[in-house]
């Protein structure tokens, strides 16, 4: 029983890692733009498809592997996925978010839902065999540490990458001018613009960084599942949104806490309640509802009192 609990704790931590980055994506955009961009899951999955597409172009992948050692070429691939995510998010910003700026906020919300549908169906239609499940290439090393199936190198790298990205993000948000500007915008947009922060520029920076994060999130989740399908993005996005709400929309550390809460609830309901698998999603989303009712600012959300 002890080892079973330990294994499920590992499962939950892994699931949390695949959810944390997309949750942060939701928080970043909400913090700066005050809107929930609903197609983030689809953008993450589209980025994973971009990586998959590059590896399936045999010539390109072989050439990459010829020039660089395996590890470096794989890192380049992941960066390609991140850049693709950043480009996609920026294009999406200009097409479905920017036209509604300063107008009805519902319009941009709905247009991002629609954009998610468009991205999903475009993958299904234009990627070769796009509606079939795709094998995601094993870019992370195989094999196990201490011969333990839980401690595969892949899992360790997924956790490591998540922690690394979080640390880089922490540094960016707290130590760079752009990061502090984004924080300021998130806390008080009008005052920030008055003291000379270029709102439009900061929005673009946020979208680029957020898009890059989503690309990495897509890569991690696809590597963890090892199979990718064009429509996984909608559920992934919904979970990412839940994570952000539970942690506190707008808070980066909240997203991390939220991902742990959601992941532990889902895994433990599945693992320890007989027949609980059917209710893991229910339990996860119930937590979200409870948070919205009783603590809408989330676990580490900004304090509402300071705004009164």
């Amino acid at each position: 029983m002890g080892s079973l609990i330990l294994s499920q704790v590992f499962n939950a931590i892994m699931l949390a890692c695949t959810l944390a980055l997309i949750g942060i994506g939701f928080s970043l955009f909400f913090g700066v733009m005050d809107i929930v961009v609903f197609c983030l899951g689809d953008i993450a999955i589209a980025s994973a498809f971009c990586i998959l597409g590059i590896t399936s172009l045999t010539g390109v992948y072989a050439a990459l592997n010829g020039i660089f050692p395996m590890v470096v070429s794989n890192i380049i691939l992941v960066i390609c996925g991140g850049v693709f995510g950043a480009i996609l998010v920026t294009v999406m910003y200009h097409t479905v978010v920017a036209p509604f700026e300063g107008k009805n906020i519902n319009a941009s919300l709905l247009s991002t839902v629609a954009a998610g549908y468009v991205i999903r169906e475009l993958i299904g239609i234009f990627y070769p065999g796009g509606r079939d499940p795709q094998n995601f290439p094993n870019l992370l090393p195989t094999g196990y540490l201490f011969n333990n199936t839980m401690l595969s190198w892949r899992n360790i790298i997924i956790v490591g990458t998540t922690v690394l990205v979080l640390m880089l993000l922490y540094w960016f948000v707290n130590r760079t001018k752009a990061g502090i500007s984004i924080q300021a915008l998130s806390q008080n947009k009008e005052a920030s613009i008055m003291i000379g922060i270029d709102w439009h520029k900061m929005v673009i920076v946020t979208f680029l960084i957020g898009g890059f994060l989503l690309g990495i999130a897509g890569f991690l989740t696809a590597s963890y599942a090892s199979t990718l399908r064009f429509d996984t993005g909608s559920m992934y996005g919904l979970l990412g949104f839940s994570v952000a709400v539970v942690g506190g929309l707008g808070s980066i550390y909240g997203a991390l806490a939220g991902s742990l809460v959601i992941a532990f609830v889902e895994v433990f309901v599945t693992g320890f309640i007989p027949g609980g698998a059917a209710y893991s999603g229910v339990a996860g989303f119930l937590i979200v509802v409870l948070f919205i009712i009783f603590r809408p600012e989330g676990i580490i959300g900004e304090k509402s009192i300071s705004k009164v």
Binding site: Q8, L15, T221, Y224, A225, S234, V267, T270, A277
Partner: peptide, 8 residues
């Protein structure tokens, strides 16, 4: 639409 079956 679930992708993680490891808990089960």
């Amino acid at each position: 639409g679930t992708t993680d079956f490891r808990p089960v």
